[in-house]
């Protein structure tokens, strides 16, 4: 149990996907302008991360590894994720139209989101059990959510400030991201000691 909590907390705070592993920077910079879209995108990411792990983990353990097909990992995972996202979109559209309306726009963007492929590959590389892998995916998704929501707040504070001409737009956003990620460095080493 303690191990699961450590995995969850370190996925959210220490190894935050966006701010310390640099995965999923595209949506982080592209969709974080408004709080609403940041929330929608992050919920879609959490959802797809959990689904993708639930599907790719058994495929790796029961199909690829026993048959010595480990080298097919990259191809199989990206195809599974792409198909899964399509499937989820169709199912949502048919059965939960309200949810589809709020998440639908973000789903196609997630296929090429490196955070999703990243979490599925890292789960295998770290040698997690199925439960640990699911917890890690949940933590990574929550970490993404936290970073997105925090950063959309930071961005709305930047707007309307007097910024040097050449820093307008993307550069100032990146500098703000640097400061936001600086705040996450403070968590380093905290969580291991919490349970020691």
């Amino acid at each position: 149990m303690t191990k699961l909590i450590i995995i969850l907390l370190s996925a959210v705070f220490i190894n935050n996907y966006v701010l310390s592993r640099f995965l999923g920077i595209c949506p982080f910079l592209g969709v974080s302008k408004k709080m609403d879209s940041a929330t929608g995108m992050s919920i879609a990411v959490i959802f797809v991360m959990l689904m993708a792990t639930a599907v790719t983990y058994p495929i790796q353990m029961y199909l690829l590894t026993p048959n010595d097909l480990g080298y097919l990992q990259t191809i199989v995972f990206i195809l599974v994720i792409a198909a899964l996202v399509q499937l989820v979109e169709i199912v949502l559209k048919r059965y939960i139209p309200a949810l589809h309306k709020s998440l639908g726009v973000y789903l196609p963007l997630i296929t090429t989101n490196c955070a999703v492929l990243g979490v599925t590959i890292l789960n295998i590389d770290e040698g997690y059990t199925f439960l640990e892998a699911m917890v890690n995916s949940l933590g990574s998704g929550l970490g993404f959510f936290l970073a997105m929501v925090m950063f959309s707040g930071v961005r709305s504070a930047i707007e309307g400030n007097d910024i040097p001409e050449s820093f307008k737009g993307l550069p100032v956003t990146l500098v703000a991201a640097a400061i936001t990620s600086l705040s996450f460095l403070g968590f380093g080493g905290v969580i291991e000691n919490l349970f020691a």
Binding site: P164, E165, S166, G169, P171, T173, A177, I179
Partner: peptide, 21 residues
């Protein structure tokens, strides 16, 4: 700090600002 995550964002931002300039 430059080799850590914040340094990455910072250097990238400054380089793009330079290109803009």
């Amino acid at each position: 700090i430059m080799t850590m995550a914040p340094g990455g964002f910072f250097v990238f931002g400054c380089l793009i600002a330079l290109v803009n300039k």
